[in-house]
Write a protein that binds this DNA or RNA. Structure first.
Lengths: 258, 258
DNA sequence: CGCGCTGTTGAAACTTGTCAAAGTTTGTGG
DNA sequence: CCACAAACTTTGACAAGTTTCAACAGCGCG
């Protein structure tokens, strides 16, 4: 039974098949986990890890299509995805929505709420999911005491800012085919990091959600998938995707130089 | 005309007239800086402000078109804009560039560098500018000691994340006219916050830079300005802009309801 | 004073969006 | 477990919006 911070770092259910972990070895496994840098700083003493574990507010299960938090909700915690898959989306005044990201195991959500103490986006589970809530006041308290935790948290926020820059690049300069290619490669890389196949995975989101994220209409996403398929770069059947030629897909993105 | 941005919009913001500083008081004086509310938390005691002042690494002058930092530069400080105007831009593998933001007085730059300890974007002064360098290690140190400073810094990072969400929305769902309208309203609002006219200001960036930021070609930006002008919403002469009908401009953005 | 950079405008080409229809999968309730 | 409805996906034809290419004008720097 693991409802502590360390456990979010450690792939449980999903990756149990890939990296078997006995329950009593959780902390050790954390230090061996290839994802550790996503969630916990390296170099914590055992005592410090224990303190971090006490900080976790608790685990929350979110059913598919249900929100973890909504725009306007009071902010009091950030969340680490334990299992499952989320999307975050923002809302324009006129009602238009835009998916700003997809979050998977080991990733942190909710930092948008710090500035106004209300969430500025909505996080919705794309499949039955589980998160660890990390009460923000307590996180700040502990960050004041543990340098490496403080630094780590700052890196997590910074990584989010850098990720956003990448999305801007994608939305601002790429054409449809490049966007879809970048999206697939990004997913592939993130799955690989977590020990899953980088070439074969399931899209938890609809074409419309992909389109929203990529600034395209769902029809364009669908057509682009079909085109990549015609070019023998991918195989798609519904939500199942197989990347047949990753170098080829990567090449698409450099195609339109300058 | 060789008058710079500040001297037009900001009735002499340059040192002496607004903020009298006696010659011997050359040290950094956050306590007397007019930007204080923008870059420091409210509620610091005098002693705390003094401590923050010791933390400022020093001012740096950056000439027009010169970089404050470049992609790949080692990260060791964040920067607060004192005077002037910057753009930040990222680079794709194939050489394409994308402006990710424009920064003006009181805004903080450089947080992208925390995660990798190298900057992931380049910051270039669009006019002769001045920044306060804030060594990051020392900032973290002090943040561990002063709660309100810690919280403030987290809010600054969070604000950046929320801002990025807004840019994604802009790039992902808006048409050219809406993007330009949003851009102008955003600038207007930021000038207003700083006590300058929200209706009349100078664009320090070229059409190409605006286009890069908005995910449009420079010709489209130019055409859109012309169209807004035809519709009597704005006046543009070169870099000088006057917003004639802010409600009208705002209406443009709700036009395309979903 | 002129050269270069920046900005404006036009016409054609191209990419993506819109609308529509049909096929496929998923979920629900009998 | 099947049947049916709803949601999602694919594909085509056409429209709209944006980019591309090109020409020219204006300002500003040397």
């Amino acid at each position: 039974m693991s409802r502590n911070f360390a456990s979010i770092l450690i792939p449980t259910m999903h990756t149990a098949q890939v990296i078997p972990i006995s329950p009593q070895r959780l902390k050790i496994a954390c230090s061996e986990c290839s994802l550790r840098e996503l969630c916990l700083p390296v170099g914590l003493s055992e005592i410090e890890v224990e303190r971090v574990e006490t900080l976790i507010g608790g685990r929350r299960r979110i059913k598919r299509q249900h929100p973890l938090y909504r725009i306007g909700d009071p902010f009091d915690a950030i969340y680490a995805v334990r299992t499952g898959f989320f999307k975050t989306e923002v809302l324009a005044d006129d009602g238009r929505e835009q998916v700003t990201g997809f979050q998977m195991a080991g990733e942190i959500m909710g930092m948008d709420g710090i500035v106004t103490e209300r969430h500025s986006c909505t996080a919705i589970a794309l499949e039955d999911s589980e998160v660890c809530a990390i009460p923000f006041m307590q996180l700040e308290q502990l960050a004041r005491e543990i340098d490496t935790l403080q630094r780590h948290f700052h890196k997590v926020m910074s990584r989010e800012i850098v990720r956003d820059q990448g999305v801007m690049m994608l939305l601002g300069t790429m054409r449809a085919e490049e966007r879809v290619a970048a999206f697939l490669l990004n997913l592939s890389q993130r799955f690989a990091t977590r020990g899953y196949s980088p070439t074969e995975f399931v899209l938890r989101m609809t074409r419309e959600e992909i389109g929203s994220y990529l600034g395209l209409k769902l029809e364009t996403v669908s057509r682009t998938f079909s085109r990549l398929h015609d070019e023998q770069l991918i195989e798609v059947r519904q939500k199942n995707v197989r990347l047949l030629d990753i170098p080829g897909i990567r090449r698409l993105m450099r195609h339109e130089c300058d």
